[in-house]
């Protein structure tokens, strides 16, 4: 394989890991209207969960159970789900922004645990020597990369098809109904908080799965892997691709991660070293600009929503109902 092809394989592997996170986020935001501001926290739980369960036993660490990788991956997913459950139970009966604030908080707290709970997470040193699944069966690193990519694409494909089936199921249609007109859904006697909780936990489990796969791919995990900027990157992927559309989520992941790495490459080649610091800041500003200007000028994203009206453009509910909804929830409490 040529150098470019080898790199492309590598790039697509990373992009498909992010695609899984974006698919999870799309279930939360695109289909259910839940704002998760702490993606990186759930990603970290999945990653550390997998690393601790699969890692080799070490005297200084509590973890290191040496489980087979798929089992550890599943464990990481479950742990992410539990973290989501704690946050969700506290906030999902309340006004939507409480979820945003709380998820933001849990991400910070998880980062602190990762950094400071040394006997579990290895602290700032991280966890080393983690097994890369089936790496020992391949002599050629490029071939291994290709096989890993194939496995990732298959995973993404399965998740995509499953989510498509889910959103077409009665449960999925309920999510949509709920998002469009909560009052009507409530009138139908649906337990709104429970349905939201299910969607939120499921989305976070997908995020956790991606975190575990990242660990499998890199073979190392440390708190540095979970900087807050990642949350913004994932959001930009969803927004660019168009929320409420699973295919859009995939396109967004590849596009945004591509722009991010490609602009880094271009900066290193075109910008004098003295200006790299500024160029880096501008690169991050682009994410902010993408988020804001998409909301303002192209609410449906690159691909747009397939059915049910634009996600950001306007609410389909009559204004009065919306406002009533607001004032009842205004104090932070819903009846």
């Amino acid at each position: 394989m040529t150098g470019l092809a080898i790199y492309l394989v590598f790039f697509l592997t990373v992009a498909s890991i992010y695609a899984i996170v974006v698919l999870g986020l799309n279930l939360q935001w695109g289909y259910t209207g839940l704002f998760n501001a702490g993606i990186v926290g759930f990603y970290a739980v999945g990653a550390y969960g997998t690393a601790i369960l699969a890692g080799p036993d070490r005297a200084a660490l509590i973890g290191g159970f040496g489980l087979p990788f798929p089992l550890a991956l599943f464990g990481g997913m479950v742990l992410s789900g539990i973290a989501a459950l704690i946050v969700g139970l506290a906030t999902l009966r309340l006004r939507g922004e409480y979820l945003a604030i709380t998820t933001f908080g849990i991400a910070i707290s998880i980062q602190l645990v990762a950094l400071n709970f040394e006997s579990l997470t290895g602290g700032a040193n991280g966890l080393v020597g983690l097994p890369r699944p089936f790496a020992d069966r391949f002599d050629d690193p490029d071939l291994y990369g290709l096989v890993f990519l194939a496995a990732m694409l298959a995973t993404v494909g399965i998740i995509y098809l499953a989510l498509e089936a889910v959103v077409r199921s009665p449960w999925g249609r309920l999510l949509n109904a709920l998002r469009e007109d909560e009052v009507a859904a409530r009138a139908l006697g649906k337990n709104i908080a429970a349905i939201r909780l299910q969607a939120f936990v499921l989305g976070c489990m997908l995020t956790g799965l991606a975190g575990g796969l990242y660990v499998g791919f890199i073979g190392f995990v440390s708190p540095l892997d979970f900087l807050p900027i990642l949350t913004f990157q994932i959001w930009a992927m969803l927004i660019v691709g168009g929320s409420g559309n699973n295919a859009g989520a995939l396109v967004g992941a590849v596009t945004v991660w591509g722009l991010w790495t490609m602009s880094g490459l271009l900066i290193s080649r075109l910008v004098p070293v003295g200006f790299h610091a500024q160029a880096g800041a501008i690169q991050t500003m682009l994410i902010g600009l993408v988020i804001v200007s998409t909301l303002l000028f192209r609410p449906q994203g690159m691909i747009g929503e397939r059915a049910g009206g634009a996600r950001f453009g306007r609410s389909n509910a009559p204004p009065v109902a919306k406002d009533r909804n607001w004032s009842t929830g205004g104090g932070g409490q819903q009846p």
Binding site: G3, L4, I6, Y7, F10, F11, V14, I218, S222, L224, D225, L227, I229, L230, W260, T261, G264, L265, I267, S268, V273, H276, G280
Partner: peptide
């Protein structure tokens, strides 16, 4: 000499290293 920025982020650093190895050889 090809200098790449890792932005202090492992995922960016790994990607940069991969381009250095596979594209820049």
């Amino acid at each position: 000499f090809v200098l790449r920025d890792d932005q202090g982020q492992p995922n960016v650093g790994v990607d940069a290293a991969k381009t250095l190895v596979s594209i820049d050889r």
